[in-house]
Amino acid sequence: MADHIGQRIAARRRARRMTQADLARASHVSLPMIKGCERGVRSPGPSTLEAIASALGVDASRLDPAYVGTGRRVHAALPAISAALAGYEIAMDPPLRPLAELRDDITSAVEWRLAARYGLIAAQAPQLLRDALAHLHSASAAHREEAAHLVVAAARAADAAAYKYGAHDLSARLIDVMRWAAGHAEDAVLNASVAYVRAETFLATGAHRAGHLMLERALDACSSPNTARSSAALGALHMRTAVVAARAGSADAAHNHLNEARTLAEGLPDGIYLGTAFGPSNVRIHEVAVSVSLGGDHIGRALEIARTWSPGEEVPAERRSGFCIEVARAQLWSGSPSEAFKSLKEARRHAPQHVREHPWAREDIETLRRLRRSDASLTSYAEWIGAV
Protein backbone atom coordinates (compact mmCIF):
# COMPACT_ATOMS: atom_id res chain seq x y z
CA MET A 1 0.00 0.00 0.00
CA ALA A 2 1.29 3.49 -0.86
CA ASP A 3 2.27 5.17 2.40
CA HIS A 4 3.58 8.55 1.28
CA ILE A 5 2.45 11.15 -1.22
CA GLY A 6 5.05 10.27 -3.82
CA GLN A 7 4.06 6.61 -3.85
CA ARG A 8 0.42 7.57 -4.30
CA ILE A 9 1.34 9.89 -7.17
CA ALA A 10 3.36 7.12 -8.82
CA ALA A 11 0.57 4.56 -8.37
CA ARG A 12 -2.03 6.89 -9.90
CA ARG A 13 0.32 7.83 -12.72
CA ARG A 14 0.98 4.19 -13.63
CA ALA A 15 -2.72 3.37 -13.43
CA ARG A 16 -3.31 6.05 -16.05
CA ARG A 17 -0.39 4.74 -18.15
CA MET A 18 1.48 8.02 -17.94
CA THR A 19 5.23 8.45 -17.83
CA GLN A 20 6.79 10.92 -15.43
CA ALA A 21 7.38 13.21 -18.40
CA ASP A 22 3.70 12.90 -19.38
CA LEU A 23 2.65 13.93 -15.87
CA ALA A 24 5.09 16.85 -15.84
CA ARG A 25 3.65 18.18 -19.11
CA ALA A 26 0.02 17.67 -18.09
CA SER A 27 0.46 19.32 -14.69
CA HIS A 28 2.88 22.10 -15.75
CA VAL A 29 5.22 20.91 -12.97
CA SER A 30 8.91 20.37 -13.63
CA LEU A 31 10.12 16.84 -14.30
CA PRO A 32 12.71 17.01 -11.46
CA MET A 33 9.88 17.91 -9.05
CA ILE A 34 7.80 14.94 -10.23
CA LYS A 35 10.76 12.58 -9.86
CA GLY A 36 11.68 14.00 -6.46
CA CYS A 37 8.12 13.69 -5.16
CA GLU A 38 7.82 10.09 -6.29
CA ARG A 39 11.14 9.20 -4.60
CA GLY A 40 9.98 10.90 -1.41
CA VAL A 41 12.86 13.41 -1.34
CA ARG A 42 10.70 16.42 -2.24
CA SER A 43 7.32 17.45 -0.87
CA PRO A 44 4.86 19.28 -3.17
CA GLY A 45 3.33 22.51 -1.92
CA PRO A 46 -0.45 23.04 -2.11
CA SER A 47 -0.48 24.52 -5.62
CA THR A 48 1.89 21.85 -6.97
CA LEU A 49 -0.13 19.08 -5.32
CA GLU A 50 -3.34 20.46 -6.85
CA ALA A 51 -1.74 20.68 -10.30
CA ILE A 52 -0.51 17.07 -10.11
CA ALA A 53 -3.84 15.83 -8.75
CA SER A 54 -5.77 17.60 -11.51
CA ALA A 55 -3.52 16.05 -14.18
CA LEU A 56 -4.14 12.64 -12.62
CA GLY A 57 -7.90 13.20 -12.48
CA VAL A 58 -8.23 12.97 -8.70
CA ASP A 59 -8.80 15.39 -5.84
CA ALA A 60 -5.64 16.44 -4.02
CA SER A 61 -6.91 14.78 -0.83
CA ARG A 62 -6.64 11.40 -2.59
CA LEU A 63 -2.87 11.94 -2.81
CA ASP A 64 -2.48 13.56 0.61
CA PRO A 65 -5.20 12.70 3.16
CA ALA A 66 -4.00 15.61 5.33
CA TYR A 67 -4.69 18.13 2.57
CA VAL A 68 -7.13 20.77 3.80
CA GLY A 69 -8.71 21.37 0.41
CA THR A 70 -8.75 23.92 -2.34
CA GLY A 71 -11.76 25.68 -0.85
CA ARG A 72 -9.83 27.02 2.11
CA ARG A 73 -7.12 28.40 -0.16
CA VAL A 74 -9.63 30.04 -2.48
CA HIS A 75 -11.62 31.62 0.34
CA ALA A 76 -8.40 32.90 1.92
CA ALA A 77 -7.50 34.62 -1.36
CA LEU A 78 -10.87 36.28 -1.96
CA PRO A 79 -10.17 39.40 0.18
CA ALA A 80 -6.95 40.00 -1.76
CA ILE A 81 -8.81 39.67 -5.05
CA SER A 82 -11.40 42.13 -3.79
CA ALA A 83 -8.68 44.56 -2.68
CA ALA A 84 -7.05 44.38 -6.11
CA LEU A 85 -10.29 45.74 -7.59
CA ALA A 86 -10.57 48.72 -5.23
CA GLY A 87 -10.21 51.86 -7.28
CA TYR A 88 -9.81 49.92 -10.50
CA GLU A 89 -10.70 53.06 -12.48
CA ILE A 90 -7.77 54.98 -10.95
CA ALA A 91 -4.14 54.76 -12.07
CA MET A 92 -2.11 53.71 -9.04
CA ASP A 93 1.17 51.76 -8.80
CA PRO A 94 3.16 50.75 -11.88
CA PRO A 95 2.99 47.07 -12.91
CA LEU A 96 5.51 44.65 -11.38
CA ARG A 97 6.09 42.75 -14.62
CA PRO A 98 6.50 43.78 -18.25
CA LEU A 99 3.66 43.33 -20.70
CA ALA A 100 5.16 40.26 -22.43
CA GLU A 101 5.58 38.43 -19.10
CA LEU A 102 2.07 39.41 -18.01
CA ARG A 103 0.69 38.10 -21.31
CA ASP A 104 2.30 34.70 -20.70
CA ASP A 105 1.13 34.54 -17.08
CA ILE A 106 -2.46 35.39 -18.00
CA THR A 107 -2.36 32.74 -20.73
CA SER A 108 -1.48 30.24 -17.99
CA ALA A 109 -4.36 31.52 -15.83
CA VAL A 110 -6.77 31.01 -18.74
CA GLU A 111 -5.51 27.43 -19.07
CA TRP A 112 -6.06 26.88 -15.33
CA ARG A 113 -9.61 28.23 -15.64
CA LEU A 114 -10.43 25.85 -18.47
CA ALA A 115 -8.95 22.97 -16.46
CA ALA A 116 -10.86 23.98 -13.27
CA ARG A 117 -7.69 24.58 -11.24
CA TYR A 118 -9.18 27.19 -8.95
CA GLY A 119 -6.53 27.02 -6.24
CA LEU A 120 -3.82 28.00 -8.70
CA ILE A 121 -5.96 30.86 -10.01
CA ALA A 122 -6.74 32.21 -6.55
CA ALA A 123 -3.07 32.36 -5.57
CA GLN A 124 -2.07 34.38 -8.64
CA ALA A 125 -5.20 36.43 -9.37
CA PRO A 126 -4.63 39.46 -7.08
CA GLN A 127 -1.30 40.45 -8.60
CA LEU A 128 -2.40 39.53 -12.11
CA LEU A 129 -5.32 41.93 -11.73
CA ARG A 130 -3.13 44.72 -10.32
CA ASP A 131 -0.61 44.39 -13.12
CA ALA A 132 -3.21 44.13 -15.87
CA LEU A 133 -5.03 47.21 -14.58
CA ALA A 134 -1.77 49.13 -14.26
CA HIS A 135 -0.84 48.30 -17.85
CA LEU A 136 -4.26 49.43 -19.09
CA HIS A 137 -3.98 52.77 -17.29
CA SER A 138 -0.50 53.41 -18.69
CA ALA A 139 -1.00 51.93 -22.17
CA SER A 140 -0.33 53.94 -25.27
CA ALA A 141 -3.02 54.06 -27.94
CA ALA A 142 -1.21 51.29 -29.81
CA HIS A 143 -1.31 48.93 -26.82
CA ARG A 144 -4.59 49.92 -25.17
CA GLU A 145 -6.68 47.23 -26.84
CA GLU A 146 -4.31 44.44 -25.85
CA ALA A 147 -4.15 45.75 -22.28
CA ALA A 148 -7.97 45.79 -22.14
CA HIS A 149 -8.06 42.17 -23.32
CA LEU A 150 -5.59 41.22 -20.59
CA VAL A 151 -7.71 42.88 -17.89
CA VAL A 152 -10.78 40.98 -19.11
CA ALA A 153 -8.89 37.68 -19.18
CA ALA A 154 -7.41 38.19 -15.70
CA ALA A 155 -10.77 39.22 -14.23
CA ARG A 156 -12.48 36.27 -15.89
CA ALA A 157 -9.96 33.84 -14.40
CA ALA A 158 -10.49 35.35 -10.94
CA ASP A 159 -14.24 35.25 -11.50
CA ALA A 160 -14.10 31.50 -12.15
CA ALA A 161 -12.77 30.92 -8.64
CA ALA A 162 -15.09 33.47 -7.01
CA TYR A 163 -18.21 32.18 -8.77
CA LYS A 164 -17.52 28.49 -8.18
CA TYR A 165 -16.91 29.07 -4.47
CA GLY A 166 -20.08 31.07 -3.92
CA ALA A 167 -18.64 34.62 -3.75
CA HIS A 168 -21.31 35.92 -6.10
CA ASP A 169 -21.05 39.58 -5.04
CA LEU A 170 -17.33 39.52 -5.83
CA SER A 171 -18.12 37.74 -9.09
CA ALA A 172 -20.50 40.56 -10.04
CA ARG A 173 -17.78 43.15 -9.27
CA LEU A 174 -15.30 41.28 -11.45
CA ILE A 175 -17.82 41.28 -14.28
CA ASP A 176 -18.22 45.05 -13.84
CA VAL A 177 -14.44 45.36 -14.24
CA MET A 178 -14.63 43.27 -17.43
CA ARG A 179 -17.35 45.51 -18.86
CA TRP A 180 -15.35 48.64 -17.97
CA ALA A 181 -12.16 47.26 -19.53
CA ALA A 182 -13.97 46.14 -22.68
CA GLY A 183 -15.07 49.74 -23.14
CA HIS A 184 -11.41 50.67 -23.69
CA ALA A 185 -11.13 48.35 -26.68
CA GLU A 186 -12.82 48.95 -30.00
CA ASP A 187 -13.67 45.26 -30.28
CA ALA A 188 -17.28 44.12 -30.55
CA VAL A 189 -16.15 40.50 -30.13
CA LEU A 190 -14.73 41.31 -26.70
CA ASN A 191 -18.07 42.84 -25.69
CA ALA A 192 -19.83 39.64 -26.78
CA SER A 193 -17.39 37.61 -24.69
CA VAL A 194 -18.08 39.75 -21.62
CA ALA A 195 -21.86 39.40 -22.15
CA TYR A 196 -21.35 35.62 -22.17
CA VAL A 197 -19.67 35.79 -18.75
CA ARG A 198 -22.19 38.30 -17.38
CA ALA A 199 -24.92 35.69 -17.75
CA GLU A 200 -23.42 34.03 -14.63
CA THR A 201 -24.97 36.77 -12.51
CA PHE A 202 -28.46 35.82 -13.68
CA LEU A 203 -27.80 32.07 -13.39
CA ALA A 204 -26.52 32.49 -9.82
CA THR A 205 -29.63 34.40 -8.72
CA GLY A 206 -32.16 32.40 -10.73
CA ALA A 207 -33.17 35.56 -12.62
CA HIS A 208 -33.45 33.61 -15.85
CA ARG A 209 -36.01 35.82 -17.63
CA ALA A 210 -33.89 38.92 -17.01
CA GLY A 211 -30.80 37.03 -18.13
CA HIS A 212 -32.56 35.90 -21.30
CA LEU A 213 -33.50 39.51 -22.09
CA MET A 214 -29.95 40.75 -21.45
CA LEU A 215 -28.46 38.09 -23.73
CA GLU A 216 -30.97 38.80 -26.49
CA ARG A 217 -29.97 42.46 -26.39
CA ALA A 218 -26.28 41.51 -26.49
CA LEU A 219 -26.95 39.35 -29.55
CA ASP A 220 -28.83 42.21 -31.24
CA ALA A 221 -25.76 44.41 -30.73
CA CYS A 222 -23.46 41.93 -32.49
CA SER A 223 -22.45 42.47 -36.09
CA SER A 224 -22.57 39.71 -38.66
CA PRO A 225 -19.48 37.53 -38.11
CA ASN A 226 -16.77 37.62 -40.73
CA THR A 227 -13.93 35.73 -39.03
CA ALA A 228 -13.57 32.47 -37.12
CA ARG A 229 -13.07 34.53 -33.96
CA SER A 230 -16.27 36.54 -34.39
CA SER A 231 -18.26 33.45 -35.44
CA ALA A 232 -17.10 31.61 -32.33
CA ALA A 233 -17.93 34.54 -30.02
CA LEU A 234 -21.41 34.86 -31.51
CA GLY A 235 -21.93 31.09 -31.44
CA ALA A 236 -20.88 30.89 -27.78
CA LEU A 237 -23.31 33.68 -26.95
CA HIS A 238 -26.10 31.73 -28.69
CA MET A 239 -25.15 28.60 -26.69
CA ARG A 240 -25.39 30.43 -23.39
CA THR A 241 -28.62 32.15 -24.40
CA ALA A 242 -30.07 28.73 -25.21
CA VAL A 243 -29.34 27.47 -21.70
CA VAL A 244 -30.67 30.61 -19.98
CA ALA A 245 -33.81 30.53 -22.16
CA ALA A 246 -34.32 26.87 -21.21
CA ARG A 247 -33.99 27.74 -17.52
CA ALA A 248 -36.61 30.43 -18.12
CA GLY A 249 -38.92 27.78 -19.64
CA SER A 250 -38.71 29.10 -23.22
CA ALA A 251 -38.22 25.87 -25.17
CA ASP A 252 -38.70 27.40 -28.61
CA ALA A 253 -36.21 30.19 -27.95
CA ALA A 254 -33.71 27.70 -26.51
CA HIS A 255 -33.84 25.48 -29.57
CA ASN A 256 -33.68 28.43 -31.95
CA HIS A 257 -30.47 29.63 -30.28
CA LEU A 258 -29.03 26.12 -30.35
CA ASN A 259 -29.69 25.96 -34.08
CA GLU A 260 -27.96 29.31 -34.57
CA ALA A 261 -24.94 28.07 -32.59
CA ARG A 262 -24.88 24.82 -34.58
CA THR A 263 -24.84 26.75 -37.87
CA LEU A 264 -21.99 28.98 -36.69
CA ALA A 265 -20.00 25.92 -35.56
CA GLU A 266 -20.09 24.35 -39.01
CA GLY A 267 -16.58 24.35 -40.43
CA LEU A 268 -15.04 25.57 -37.16
CA PRO A 269 -12.81 23.17 -35.22
CA ASP A 270 -13.45 22.78 -31.51
CA GLY A 271 -11.08 25.13 -29.79
CA ILE A 272 -10.64 28.10 -27.48
CA TYR A 273 -11.69 31.42 -28.97
CA LEU A 274 -11.07 34.50 -26.83
CA GLY A 275 -11.04 32.32 -23.72
CA THR A 276 -14.27 30.43 -24.50
CA ALA A 277 -14.58 26.89 -25.84
CA PHE A 278 -16.63 26.66 -29.02
CA GLY A 279 -17.17 24.21 -31.87
CA PRO A 280 -19.43 21.28 -32.78
CA SER A 281 -18.69 19.28 -29.61
CA ASN A 282 -19.39 22.28 -27.40
CA VAL A 283 -22.73 22.83 -29.13
CA ARG A 284 -23.66 19.21 -28.48
CA ILE A 285 -22.74 19.59 -24.80
CA HIS A 286 -25.05 22.59 -24.61
CA GLU A 287 -27.82 20.59 -26.27
CA VAL A 288 -27.62 18.22 -23.31
CA ALA A 289 -27.65 21.17 -20.90
CA VAL A 290 -30.73 22.63 -22.61
CA SER A 291 -32.56 19.29 -22.47
CA VAL A 292 -31.84 18.89 -18.75
CA SER A 293 -32.79 22.51 -18.03
CA LEU A 294 -36.13 22.05 -19.80
CA GLY A 295 -36.75 18.72 -18.03
CA GLY A 296 -39.83 16.57 -18.55
CA ASP A 297 -40.08 15.02 -21.99
CA HIS A 298 -36.87 16.75 -23.07
CA ILE A 299 -34.72 14.53 -20.83
CA GLY A 300 -34.82 11.74 -23.40
CA ARG A 301 -32.74 13.81 -25.82
CA ALA A 302 -29.96 14.19 -23.24
CA LEU A 303 -29.93 10.43 -22.65
CA GLU A 304 -29.93 9.74 -26.39
CA ILE A 305 -26.84 11.90 -26.91
CA ALA A 306 -25.03 10.35 -23.93
CA ARG A 307 -25.64 6.80 -25.19
CA THR A 308 -23.73 7.38 -28.41
CA TRP A 309 -21.33 10.25 -27.75
CA SER A 310 -19.08 11.86 -25.17
CA PRO A 311 -16.72 14.84 -25.50
CA GLY A 312 -13.08 14.17 -26.29
CA GLU A 313 -9.85 15.76 -25.17
CA GLU A 314 -10.42 18.66 -27.57
CA VAL A 315 -12.95 19.97 -25.03
CA PRO A 316 -11.64 21.62 -21.80
CA ALA A 317 -11.75 19.50 -18.65
CA GLU A 318 -14.27 21.75 -16.88
CA ARG A 319 -16.74 21.46 -19.75
CA ARG A 320 -16.28 17.66 -20.04
CA SER A 321 -16.99 17.45 -16.33
CA GLY A 322 -20.10 19.63 -16.71
CA PHE A 323 -21.38 17.36 -19.48
CA CYS A 324 -21.10 14.33 -17.16
CA ILE A 325 -22.92 16.17 -14.35
CA GLU A 326 -25.78 17.11 -16.68
CA VAL A 327 -26.00 13.51 -17.96
CA ALA A 328 -25.99 12.18 -14.38
CA ARG A 329 -28.98 14.35 -13.53
CA ALA A 330 -30.86 13.10 -16.59
CA GLN A 331 -30.05 9.49 -15.68
CA LEU A 332 -31.15 9.99 -12.10
CA TRP A 333 -34.44 11.56 -13.16
CA SER A 334 -35.07 8.72 -15.60
CA GLY A 335 -34.67 6.07 -12.89
CA SER A 336 -31.08 4.91 -13.54
CA PRO A 337 -29.19 5.65 -10.30
CA SER A 338 -26.30 3.28 -11.07
CA GLU A 339 -25.64 5.00 -14.38
CA ALA A 340 -25.93 8.40 -12.70
CA PHE A 341 -23.24 7.45 -10.19
CA LYS A 342 -20.97 6.26 -13.01
CA SER A 343 -21.37 9.62 -14.71
CA LEU A 344 -20.57 11.52 -11.52
CA LYS A 345 -17.42 9.44 -11.05
CA GLU A 346 -16.45 10.24 -14.62
CA ALA A 347 -17.07 13.94 -13.95
CA ARG A 348 -14.67 13.79 -11.00
CA ARG A 349 -12.04 12.15 -13.19
CA HIS A 350 -12.14 15.09 -15.58
CA ALA A 351 -12.18 18.03 -13.13
CA PRO A 352 -12.41 17.19 -9.42
CA GLN A 353 -12.35 20.79 -8.17
CA HIS A 354 -15.24 21.65 -10.48
CA VAL A 355 -17.35 18.71 -9.31
CA ARG A 356 -16.69 19.32 -5.65
CA GLU A 357 -18.16 22.82 -5.86
CA HIS A 358 -21.03 22.01 -8.23
CA PRO A 359 -24.41 22.21 -6.43
CA TRP A 360 -26.09 19.72 -8.77
CA ALA A 361 -23.40 17.13 -8.17
CA ARG A 362 -23.81 17.46 -4.40
CA GLU A 363 -27.62 17.36 -4.61
CA ASP A 364 -27.57 14.26 -6.81
CA ILE A 365 -25.12 12.43 -4.56
CA GLU A 366 -27.38 13.18 -1.59
CA THR A 367 -30.31 11.69 -3.51
CA LEU A 368 -28.30 8.64 -4.57
CA ARG A 369 -27.15 8.03 -1.03
CA ARG A 370 -30.73 8.05 0.24
CA LEU A 371 -31.50 5.37 -2.35
CA ARG A 372 -28.41 3.23 -1.70
CA ARG A 373 -27.07 3.84 1.82
CA SER A 374 -25.24 0.50 1.94
CA ASP A 375 -22.98 1.36 -1.02
CA ALA A 376 -19.53 2.04 0.48
CA SER A 377 -18.16 3.67 -2.68
CA LEU A 378 -21.13 6.04 -2.80
CA THR A 379 -20.61 6.95 0.85
CA SER A 380 -16.94 7.64 0.15
CA TYR A 381 -17.88 9.93 -2.76
CA ALA A 382 -20.48 11.69 -0.60
CA GLU A 383 -17.85 12.32 2.09
CA TRP A 384 -15.42 13.65 -0.52
CA ILE A 385 -17.93 16.08 -2.02
CA GLY A 386 -19.19 17.24 1.39
CA ALA A 387 -22.68 15.75 1.15
CA VAL A 388 -22.44 14.06 4.59
Results as ranks from 00 to 15, higher is better:
Ala2Val: 04
His4Lys: 08
Ala10Tyr: 00
Ala11Phe: 07
Arg12Pro: 05
Arg12Trp: 14
Arg17Trp: 11
Asp22Met: 07
Val29Pro: 06
Met33Pro: 02
Lys35Phe: 01
Gly36Tyr: 04
Cys37Pro: 00
Arg42Cys: 11
Gly45Glu: 06
Leu56Thr: 09
Val58Thr: 04
Leu63Glu: 03
Gly69Trp: 07
Arg72Phe: 13
Arg73Asn: 10
Arg73Gly: 14
Arg73Ile: 10
Val74Ala: 09
Val74Lys: 13
His75Trp: 11
Ala77Thr: 14
Leu78Ala: 14
Ala83His: 15
Gly87Asp: 11
Tyr88Asn: 03
Ile90Val: 15
Met92Leu: 15
Pro98Phe: 10
Glu101Ser: 12
Leu102Tyr: 07
Arg103Gln: 08
Asp105Leu: 13
Thr107Arg: 13
Ser108Glu: 15
Leu114Lys: 09
Ala122Thr: 05
Ala122Phe: 03
Ala123Met: 12
Pro126Lys: 02
Pro126Met: 03
Leu129Lys: 06
Leu129Ala: 08
Asp131Val: 10
Asp131Ala: 12
Leu133Tyr: 02
Leu133Ser: 03
Ser140Trp: 09
Ala142Leu: 12
Ala148Lys: 01
Ala154Glu: 05
Ala155Ile: 00
Ala158Arg: 10
Ala160Ile: 00
Tyr163Ile: 03
Gly166His: 09
Gly166Arg: 08
Asp169Pro: 01
Leu170Lys: 10
Leu170Asp: 06
Ser171Val: 02
Arg179Lys: 10
Ala181Cys: 06
Gly183Arg: 07
His184Ala: 13
His184Val: 01
Ala185Cys: 05
Glu186His: 12
Asp187Gln: 07
Val194Pro: 02
Glu200Arg: 15
Ala207Tyr: 12
Gly211Thr: 11
Asp220His: 15
Pro225Arg: 06
Ala233Leu: 03
Ala233Ser: 13
Leu234Gln: 14
Ala253Pro: 00
Ala253Trp: 03
Ala253Asn: 06
Asn256Ser: 15
Arg262Asn: 13
Asp270His: 09
Asp270Cys: 07
Gly271His: 03
Ile272Phe: 02
Ala277Cys: 10
Gly279Ile: 05
Asn282Leu: 13
Ile285Pro: 00
Glu287Asn: 11
Glu287Met: 12
Glu287Phe: 02
Leu294Trp: 10
Leu294Phe: 09
Gly295Glu: 05
Ala306Val: 08
Arg307Met: 04
Trp309Pro: 00
Glu314Pro: 00
Glu318Gln: 13
Arg319Ile: 04
Arg320Leu: 01
Ser321Cys: 14
Gly322Tyr: 03
Phe323Arg: 08
Glu326Tyr: 07
Ala328Pro: 12
Ala328Val: 09
Arg329Lys: 13
Ala330Pro: 08
Ala330Tyr: 04
Trp333Cys: 13
Ser334Asn: 15
Gly335Trp: 06
Pro337Ala: 12
Ser338Met: 13
Ser338Leu: 14
Leu344Lys: 02
Ala351Arg: 04
Gln353Glu: 15
Gln353Gly: 01
Glu357Tyr: 08
Arg370Tyr: 06
Arg373Asn: 11
Ser380Asp: 13
